[in-house]
């Protein structure tokens, strides 16, 4: 297993990454060859035929059919090879194996959520078993995002109101970066996640525990966990610094002035409303960019989040 990567490519961790890398390096060495040829030719000519004194009449050679056909046909053959090679791998990237585990991916400003066939849901962390093909059925709730895992050499746009499909099969356990590659606004560069590849056994255990239910936690701790797992931190800090949204610190029990004018008391009702219908009352100085969590968070989770926010006193 390649863990260091090469000068250009990060370590490849999927069944198809090797194929992509070999085509990459084929083109790379071919390019190096032509680049050296052209640059060396330039340097040699510039030196050898540099102007000494006055420029006299020079050779009138205007073309050479053999030469011109050669430098048309050879590159043509090369690029056709590359085309076929690239297309074959591309099809393998797109045709999903029949036995793949289907996970639903939802992109949203600015986090990823994953729905597993067993009913579990996670945010910004995709947990998958190693050596198993994983099919991703993806859609977006707002704008176009793009699901990009460099280590797997995979990328697919995630479109609103439409499904796109891709798949991968990881070959090594570990944590891999997941990035959004299609510009999606203010939090684009914060729309990061991890793909956590674990062994079959660990995956089964993890599903068993039922992630996201808060079993055995008090509401405040569960809220703190949700704050992380549901990516609230992308926009709301807990240390008082304003971000894309207001900080959670000390917000409970205060009065907040509203963008439309007037003010509101920050109580349980307001917090619940802000989670479910974020555009209803925007705090002055912020943009109406928060997505609704209707259907994303369960009642118990909302209660836990409110409990957590209440606990963050100044």
């Amino acid at each position: 297993m390649d863990t260091t990567g090469t000068l250009f490519m990060p370590p490849g961790q999927s069944t198809l990454s090797g194929e992509v890398d070999s085509l990459f390096y084929f083109i790379f060495y071919m390019s190096v060859f032509f680049f050296v040829l052209i640059v060396a030719g330039t340097i040699i000519f510039v030196y050898r035929y540099r102007r000494r004194g006055k420029a006299g009449l020079t050779s009138g050679v205007s073309h050479n059919t053999t030469l011109e056909v050669t430098w048309t046909v050879i590159p043509l053959i090369l690029v056709l090879i590359i085309f076929v090679w690239g297309f074959k791998t591309y099809m393998r990237m797109n045709v999903v194996p029949k036995d793949a585990i289907e996970i639903k991916v939802t992109g949203q400003k600015w986090f990823w959520s994953f729905d597993y066939p067993e009913g579990a849901t996670t945010v910004n962390e995709l947990v998958v078993p190693v050596d198993k093909p994983i099919k991703l059925l993806m859609s977006s709730k707002d704008v176009i995002h793009s699901f990009f895992v460099p280590a797997f050499r995979m990328k697919m746009d995630v479109l609103p109101n439409r499904y796109t499909i891709t798949w991968f099969e990881a070959i090594g356990a570990g944590n891999y970066d997941l990035l959004c590659a299609e510009y999606c606004g203010k939090g684009h560069s914060e729309m990061l996640g991890k793909v956590k590849v674990v062994s079959d056994r660990e995956y089964a255990e993890w599903l068993e525990k039922g992630p996201g239910t808060g079993e055995g936690l008090n509401p405040v701790d569960f809220g703190a966990q949700l704050y992380k797992s549901k990516a609230c931190f992308t926009c709301h800090s807990v240390d008082g610094t304003p971000n894309i949204g207001p900080s959670f610190k000390g917000v409970y029990g205060h009065k907040a002035s509203l963008e439309k004018g007037g003010e509101t008391a920050v109580d349980e009702n307001y917090l619940r409303e802000s989670i479910l219908d974020p555009q209803a009352k925007i705090v002055a100085g912020y943009q109406p960019v928060m997505p609704t969590y209707q259907g994303v968070l369960k009642d118990k989770q909302i209660d836990a989040l409110i409990a957590y926010i209440k606990s963050l006193k100044e």
Binding site: K104, T106, S113, S139, S140, K141, D142, P160, N161, R162, Y163, T164, I165, P278, Q279, Q287, P288, V289, P291, T292, Q294, G295, V296
Partner: peptide, 23 residues
């Protein structure tokens, strides 16, 4: 992979809010 809701007019009052329907 066609439209998830073929009669999509997802917009509610505020265009920044595109809640619901999709997922």
């Amino acid at each position: 992979a066609g439209p998830i809701t073929p009669d999509a007019t997802i917009y509610q009052s505020n265009p920044a809010d595109t809640s619901g329907t999709v997922a």
